[in-house]
Design a protein around this nucleic acid. Structure first.
Lengths: 152, 152
DNA sequence: TATAGAATTGACGTAAACGTAAAAGGTGCA
DNA sequence: TGCACCTTTTACGTTTACGTCAATTCTATA
């Protein structure tokens, strides 16, 4: 039943001797596991955010790709653009202390936080205005149909 | 030269007297007055949201157009799409009680209010996550440069 | 072996609200 | 008369993050 997990022991014409961890996933599994579409994964790759290995033409995602995808999704959740996410991830250097990367991330985060707070203010403003308008409209409806009562 | 409102009898080479109120504005004035661009006004007209008169090919906006524009801007402020705004305005009938229009507006408003509240929740969520991440990043920065202190 | 189920690349479509450029016509004023 | 402005129409471009085919290939299983 396992169409997946090609890492299973023997008879692999297409061996993927990728050392230790056999946590290779194909695009369908990835999509299901992280709640994205295939198109999304290919799109992220096209944009240079992911770089899965290939077995022939089939994409194989390692746990490193999974970590990156998690980061992408977190970034999108907090409102970063894919370009921002890429910029931050591109600075990652497994041999260094990544101080620059962290500083950039922190800097971008501060700006994004400010944007979010501004957005929240705008939305609250909109909520206020909309509530006002609704009250006015309800009033007009009451005046125009004196016999009916408005629910809630 | 008046292709529009041919009812006027007098020969005004340069007339601005289209009936009573002289509150006719050309597109430039409108734009300045309401803080939009010319393109925006033409776009709204193209979408059927405005219908200024014409003096030849020049657009002339009456106070009715101004009222409509105000409504459009309010609608956009609270997050309605132009299509929604149009749909609501299209129901306006100066001879009736407009009960249907008001009900539609109220209905759409309730839904929009729900959307706004949802958005606000999402943003607050994002703010929380982002703040967490920032704290973590700050911590990493501290660990990686023991001699420096982080501002604020 | 046939067939269904994955996967691939490529390319056009979508949504919203305009921006921008081009080419041309009108208008006031010095 | 000439120049600086305003206005017009037409039409393509922008942004972001994918959606939606289409045509094809690969693979695994009944």
């Amino acid at each position: 039943m396992k169409l997946v997990s090609p890492g299973e022991a023997a008879a692999n014409t297409n061996d993927m001797s990728v050392e230790a961890g056999e946590d290779l996933a194909r695009i369908g599994e990835m999509a299901k596991k992280y709640g994205v579409t295939l198109r999304t994964l290919r799109f992220y790759e096209d944009k240079g955010l992911l770089n899965p290995q290939r077995d022939g033409s089939t994409r194989l995602y390692t746990r490193r790709d999974k970590a990156r995808l998690k980061l992408i999704l977190l970034g999108r959740k907090v409102g970063f653009s894919l370009r921002d996410v890429k910029q931050m991830m591109d600075l990652y250097d497994p041999t260094g202390s990544n101080t620059k990367q962290l500083r950039l991330a922190l800097d971008k985060s501060e700006k994004q936080l400010a944007r979010l707070q501004k957005q929240r203010a705008l939305i609250e403003d909109a909520i206020g205005e909309l509530s006002n308008s609704m009250a006015a409209v309800r009033q007009m409806l009451i005046e125009r149909s004196p016999q009916a009562s408005v629910a809630s």
